[in-house]
Design a protein around this nucleic acid. Structure first.
Length: 574
DNA sequence: AATACAAGCGCG
DNA sequence: AAAGCGCGCTTGTATT
């Protein structure tokens, strides 16, 4: 047990914010009454090692950013509470688990109960966690104690820091926004859909295709947007599909199918990312999605609003740097298989992947016959495929890389038995529900029916595939957070451009309009918006950060995480 | 009229 | 082609 840290409180009462410097032995110096602006002024003079401890980054940080203040380091009590509460590495943290008010945000009422908290600005993430300084101090103390009492404080502390840095970055990404070209987007829409329709009307290409499909179906009134009706229309012309999904329809040979698939593609674009989306989400030359750090149980981020995680590749050309600026677009090649190799210590798999495309490495070693097969096999191994091509190819991987495959197989076994699994840094999967356990129990009873047993087998299998994937997806998310956090620190050290030197301010807000900054993140990919003159420096920083993330998580394990990196004014993916 | 759910498809 | 994991969003339909 380490001694409880002492801290300096410069936060405002009611703000839920405490500023802590764990690197120095600071005594509490008192609190100031005041608003966030006072706090921002006070904190802007704080040393770079200052760690902001607050109830909920999403609740407080946007206001600081709006006042031009960034936080170098953070500790998000809400997110860290969830990690420590669930981690299998903190078995003794019962007082922390008892502090249920800190669970409020993750257990949002679904029964329509009115919110119990007073929201003045409707900020996302501002849910029922306590906002007082005393509550924050108490919770922080509990978290430090839980950490100190854990079976691996070093890794868990790394995770808490990474999660909290992610929370800072999520707020910053929203504040900065993705530079978005309305012109390019509209050009794509017009070329594909044929011009903006009046409200309530269909775009020309959609209307034309609809007519073609109806003609081919021999039914001028056929409904193409209602699945049951469409299915009946298809049956009438002999297309005996069981669903209207693209995959199934594509197997039938009928003149209606081609235009119908095209119709579905176009309506999807028009509905999800058409002119309405553009008006709502790309105002002022910026797409500002709401990121939700820790929104997925595995530790991945979720998003809410704008569909940040689903931007169709088709629209990526609309991501366009401002004049005088450029984009550094980087993604990690085969992040999850590499993570699996590293966390399992599988040197054979690492050897196959080092310095090259991992899938090519498998082909070269004769494990599978083609890159495509390698990819299918590897994904199948991590997702728990049992049938089809994927299931067929997995055994070859299991023979070649027993150590890596053993790790995911063991995770699946534990999950199927109702156990929990844990990522490399200590994030633990949720436990089973009572219903799940009951179903397993019923299947074992003497009077169990075949249906009972089938249901239990199925739910056990489902859960096994979930925990199998959890360890890999979750550790990959940790690597990505370490990459992001490290990169963020590096970018903060680049000089700001000033107007005198020819650099142009952008629409990215008071903090980011003159600095290279992250503007997009999606699981294994980042985009940095940077002044033209800093592109190469940023690219180096991006690569260095990836290497640093690998070193932070996996030390000297001999495996690299190569990046596909482009410097370009737009984010088109090839 | 409001809400819940399933299907389908976009992303990794 | 879909399969095996994790998401968000829109639509139409069913339910209340």
């Amino acid at each position: 047990m380490t001694a409880p840290p002492r801290w300096r409180v410069v936060g405002a009462d009611g703000s839920g914010i405490v500023v802590v410097d764990l690197d120095e032995d600071l005594r509490e110096t008192g609190r100031t009454r005041g608003d966030v602006v006072d706090l921002a002024i006070a904190a802007s003079a704080a040393p770079a090692t200052t760690r902001w401890v607050w109830s909920d980054t999403a609740r407080w940080y946007p206001q600081l950013l709006a006042h031009g203040v960034t936080a170098a380091r953070g500790h998000d009590l809400r997110l860290c509470h969830a990690i420590l509460r669930d981690s299998a590495w903190t078995p003794e943290a019962s007082d922390l688990r008892g502090a249920v008010v800190w669970d409020a945000a993750t257990a949002e009422p679904s029964d329509g109960a009115p919110a119990l908290f007073d929201l003045d600005d409707g900020e996302a993430g501002a849910v029922g966690v306590p906002n007082g300084v005393d509550a924050a101090v108490d919770e922080f103390r509990r978290q430090r104690a839980a950490l100190a009492g854990s079976t691996d404080p070093a890794r868990l502390e790394l995770l808490l820091a990474a999660e909290s840095a992610g929370a800072l970055i999520a707020a910053e990404l929203h504040a900065a926004g993705v530079p978005w070209s309305r012109e390019v987007h509209e050009g794509i829409l017009e070329e594909t859909l044929g011009g903006r329709p009046a409200a309530g009307e269909l775009a020309p290409r959609v209307r034309e295709l609809g007519a073609v499909v109806r003609a081919a179906l021999g039914d001028p009134a056929a409904s193409l947007d209602s699945q049951p009706k469409l299915l009946r229309s298809l049956h009438r012309v002999g297309v005996l599909a069981e669903s209207t999904s693209r995959w199934e329809l594509a197997r039938f040979d009928h003149p209606a199918i081609g235009p119908l698939l095209q119709y579905k593609k176009l309506t999807r674009l028009a509905n999800a990312n058409g002119w309405t989306w553009l008006d709502e989400w790309a105002r002022g030359g910026r797409f500002r999605p709401v990121y939700v750090p820790g929104g997925v149980v595995t530790g991945r981020w979720a998003s809410s609003g704008g569909g940040a995680l689903q931007l169709p590749r088709q629209l990526r050309p609309a991501v366009r740097a401002d004049p005088g600026w450029t984009l550094i677009v980087a993604d990690v090649a085969q992040l999850e298989p590499r993570v699996l190799a590293a966390m399992s210590g599988d040197r054979a798999l690492a050897e196959a992947a080092r310095g090259r495309d991992l899938y090519d490495g498998l082909v070269e070693r004769g494990i599978v016959d083609s890159r495509q097969e390698a990819k299918i096999a590897m994904l199948g191994a991590m997702y728990g495929a049992t049938t089809g091509d994927s299931g067929r190819l997995v055994p070859a991987l299991r023979r070649a890389y027993p150590r890596a495959m053993g790790l995911v197989d063991e995770a699946a076994r534990l999950g199927a038995e109702g156990g929990v699994v844990t990522t490399w840094l200590g994030r633990t999967s949720p436990g089973v529900s009572d219903g799940w356990r009951d179903a397993q129990g019923r299947a074992g009873a003497p009077d169990a029916t075949e249906a009972d047993r089938a249901r239990a087998r199925r739910s056990a299998g489902d859960r096994g595939r979930f925990t199998r994937n959890f360890v890999v997806q979750g550790t990959a998310a940790e690597w990505a957070l370490a990459w992001l956090g490290s990169l963020r620190t590096e970018l903060a050290q680049l000089p700001a451009v000033d107007a005198a030197s020819g650099g142009e301010a952008t629409a990215s807000g008071p903090v980011f309009s003159r600095r290279a900054h992250l503007c997009f993140f999606l699981h294994d990919e980042i985009i940095v918006h940077a002044p033209l003159g800093q592109a190469d420096l940023v690219a180096e920083a991006v690569r260095r950060s990836a290497a640093r993330a690998t070193q932070i998580l996996f030390g000297a394990f001999p495996l690299d995480f190569p990046l596909d990196l482009r410097i370009a004014p737009d984010a088109t993916k090839d």
